[in-house]
Amino acid sequence: MPTPGPTPVDRLRALCLALPEAEERVSHGEPSWFAGSGRRARMFVMLSDHHHHDDRLGFWCAAPGGAQERLTGEDPERYYRPPYVGHRGWLGVYLDGPAPDWARIEDLVADAHALVGPGL
């Protein structure tokens, strides 16, 4: 029997932790990724694993201005306005359902890190 590949959470974790000064912590009961060190660290990605108003697996990330509206308009089955942080422009991305576009997810994670990351 073949060994299963990495889970979507494993892949997301690897993308986040590959970025400079990124670390994982639990926040609001979910794995979350922070950029920066110590008290300066700011969250850039948060897993949404069935606990936040639906039964879907996804993540929330900081997003540049206009990205939330553009992506949710292009593909509302994949992208959504997350509760709590959606009003600040954060983007929700579902990881379940049709195969995720990991190249785009890598770009979204990198953009989120750049928005809140070290040196800001």
Rank of each mutant, 00 (worst) to 15 (best):
P8F: 03
C16Y: 03
R104C: 05
F44A: 07
G86C: 05
R40F: 01
M46D: 00
V93P: 11
V9M: 12
P20K: 04
A18R: 08
A62K: 13
R56H: 14
E24N: 13
P83W: 04
A67I: 07
R56A: 13
R88M: 13
G38Q: 06
L108Y: 10
G65I: 12
G89S: 09
W33H: 11
P31V: 01
R11T: 08
G5V: 01
M46P: 07
L108P: 02
G92V: 01
A99H: 10
L95E: 07
A63M: 12
D75T: 08
Y94P: 01
D111F: 00
G89V: 02
E69M: 03
G73R: 10
G119E: 14
D96G: 02
T72N: 01
L91Y: 08
L12V: 09
G36V: 04
L115V: 01
M46H: 13
A18L: 03
S32T: 15
A114F: 00
H50A: 15
E77H: 03
V109M: 02
A22V: 06
E30D: 14
P98K: 05
A110N: 00
A63K: 08
L91D: 08
T7S: 15
G89R: 11
A35V: 01
P98I: 10
P2F: 00
G92K: 06
V93S: 09
V116M: 02
F44R: 11
E21W: 01
Y80K: 06
T3W: 02
P6G: 11
L19M: 03
V85D: 04
V93G: 04
L120T: 14
D55H: 15
R56V: 02
Q68S: 09
D96Y: 05
P98N: 03
G38D: 07
A112M: 02
Y94V: 00
F34T: 06
A41E: 11
P76F: 00
D55V: 03
R40Y: 02
P2D: 14
Q68D: 10
Y84D: 02
L19R: 10
D107Q: 13
L115D: 08
D107L: 08
R81L: 00
D55Y: 07
G92I: 00
H52Y: 09
P83M: 06
G117S: 08
A99D: 13
R78N: 07
A22C: 11
V109K: 12
G117Y: 08
G97V: 06
L17V: 03
G89K: 11
Y80T: 06
P31H: 12
I105M: 05
D54N: 15
R13K: 14
V109G: 09
D54K: 03
R78G: 00
T7A: 08
L71C: 03
P20R: 05
H50P: 02
G29S: 07
P31A: 12
A41H: 05
H50V: 08
A63N: 09
E21Q: 15
H50Y: 12
F59M: 05
Y80S: 13
R70V: 01
L12A: 01
E21T: 09
R11E: 07
F34H: 14
F34G: 06
L120P: 15
H113I: 04
R25T: 04
L71S: 05
D10H: 12
L57G: 00
E30I: 05
W60T: 04
R56K: 06
R88Q: 15
D111N: 11
W33S: 07
R104Y: 10
A112L: 04
G5A: 09
R104G: 03
A62F: 01
T7C: 06
A35Y: 05
R13C: 02
V85Q: 14
G119Y: 04
